[in-house]
Design a protein around this nucleic acid. Structure first.
Lengths: 145, 145
DNA sequence: ATAAAGTCTCTAGCAGCTATAGCTTCAAGA
DNA sequence: TCTTGAAGCTATAGCTGCTAGAGACTTTAT
């Protein structure tokens, strides 16, 4: 069993954040020691690490809740899981496309820097360009992500 | 010249958000009409679109401020730009790696769903796995992103 | 000329943490 | 065994990055 501090260190999540996740129901209420301190099972570490990485990738907690529900109910009808997974996949691909464009542009800048000129920096244009944009900014819903 | 509403529509950013960016200094104070309404030059649209896309990719406003400073001072010493660009590039690549892992896993899940089984969902493992992880969770600084 | 739509400032609220205060529990050395 | 310092507890307040009113003024369209 892990104390909350050990769990936090292992997952790279701060202690108050863990308590916050418990409060909003993303993590189950753990057992307590005789002195009322939280004690976590090993598998909670997987769940918490998942949450942490998903957050870093920009998933809102509600989307993470959905993804976790896939794990929590492996017997639920496939249609539900499929819908969630497909929506998340679209969102992930949209992010990938724009991140790749940004990567390319940053690489270009760094190469140019090596040659002593940044006068024609186009970082702004590459991300400002709606041609790379997975959203329709014009009246549509935001992506589920 | 664009009114704030037109600018917002064009960039996909809400009007109060534009005023907020002005307040915190990400956007310059624009000219005003005789009736005190904001009037924006065309090029502000590029800047705002950039901010929007960078935010969607998860860059904090401070990182965006840095990136914009590259654009704002094309004559600054290359070393400064280079440092910023390289830090951002590392962060971008770390994100790309984990997003790709998640994409793969979601694809796998969807294929399995088509075959009627999600019993061995591994979404959590794929993101929980620190082998894919660009950070050192263990005592280091967070990435500049 | 007037009505509707857009804009103004100001303030308050929300998500997702993060830090502080004041107290209790635990573990490790003297 | 005692003690002392780190770690944990609850509760509350603050932070970032928006977002949504309220109530008054400006523009635009008919």
């Amino acid at each position: 069993m892990l104390t909350i501090g050990k769990l936090g260190d292992a997952a790279g999540v701060k202690v108050p954040t863990i308590r916050y996740y418990e409060q909003i129901g993303l993590l189950p209420e753990p057992d307590r020691s005789s002195g009322n301190q939280r004690l976590y099972a090993r598998r909670t570490l997987d769940r918490l690490s998942f949450i942490r990485h998903a957050r870093e990738l920009g998933f809102p907690l509600e989307a993470i809740r959905d993804l976790l529900s896939l794990q929590d109910s492996p017997d639920q009808p496939c249609a539900a899981a499929d819908t969630i997974a497909k929506a998340q996949l679209l969102a992930v691909r949209a992010r990938l496309a724009r991140l790749k464009a940004l990567e390319t542009e940053l690489e270009r800048m760094i190469v140019q820097c090596a040659h002593g000129t940044i006068a024609d920096c186009r970082v702004i244009e590459v991300l400002g360009d709606h041609a790379n944009c997975a959203h329709d900014h014009h009246g549509g819903q935001e992506a589920a992500l």
